[in-house]
């Protein structure tokens, strides 16, 4: 049971637009993610990949169904409890890096530690460890995100996702905005992190990216239509 890091049971997600139009972003998803998994979720644009990732990461509550993280039913948790869970157990990586431009690299990576309640003097060491793991250079510490290339920013974003040492890394098109060389660096980093024990899930519509995972899941119209084990 403990090895079931994420479990989705009959999860559906319906968006109702302001005009009252219903969109079924997810339909009846059942999925178990085990510790150490490296999964890629594939599917065409607008078919529910991001929604699935957000539901798994508790950023989004399902309309129906249940989401378990480390065996805990998250649908019954309060906003504060969910936030703490995300802070401690889940790291998000986005296509657009989503760093905060007015803050330095150090301040960006520090953000999850503030929430976690780590005393200030202990933060620097944790930040540096995360930077080492994600291939960042310490000379960036006092720079702003806009002074870095896209590939460098994405590595900072990975460091920020890693800094609380979460079990799960959820990546939404992490290479979508990168040139092939930077993309390779990022993917290798993710692969290395998986080898270090993190459970990694990547959403992508690029088959080349998807193929570095150990397992591929195909999604269409909000439903899982198949999976393929690569290793």
């Amino acid at each position: 049971m403990v090895d079931e890091v994420i479990k989705l049971v009959n999860v559906s997600k319906v968006y109702i637009s302001s005009g009252g139009v219903k969109t079924w972003a997810l339909r009846d998803i059942n999925l178990v993610v085990y510790r150490g998994d490296f999964i890629s979720i594939m599917g065409p644009s607008g078919h529910g990949k991001t929604t699935l990732l957000y539901v798994m990461g508790t950023l989004e509550r399902p309309t129906t169904g249940k989401v378990f993280i480390n065996g805990v039913d998250t649908t019954t948790l309060s906003d504060e409890e969910l936030s703490k869970l995300r802070n401690k157990e889940i790291g998000f990586i986005f296509q657009q890096y989503n760093l905060i431009n007015r803050m330095t690299i150090e301040e960006n990576i520090e953000l999850p530690l503030i929430k976690l309640g780590i005393p200030r003097e202990k933060r620097r060491k944790m930040i540096e460890e995360a930077m080492l793991k994600s291939g960042c250079e310490f000379s960036w510490l006092n720079k702003r995100p806009t002074q870095l290339s896209g590939g460098q920013q994405q590595r900072v974003a990975i460091a920020r996702a890693l800094v609380t040492n979460p079990r799960i890394l959820l990546c939404d098109e992490p290479t979508g905005a990168l040139d092939s060389k930077s993309a390779e660096v990022v993917l290798n980093t993710l692969k290395k992190l998986n080898e270090l024990g993190h459970t990694v899930i990547i959403v992508t519509h690029d088959p080349n990216v998807a193929s570095i995972a150990k397992k591929m899941i195909f999604i269409r119209d909000g439903t899982i239509i198949g999976e393929k084990v690569l290793q």
Partner: peptide, 16 residues
């Protein structure tokens, strides 16, 4: 708006 989303993804609650 986007920043608020990022903060929530990083584990900040509505109260925070």
């Amino acid at each position: 708006t986007r920043e608020i989303g990022i903060f929530k993804a990083l584990g900040y609650s509505s109260n925070d």
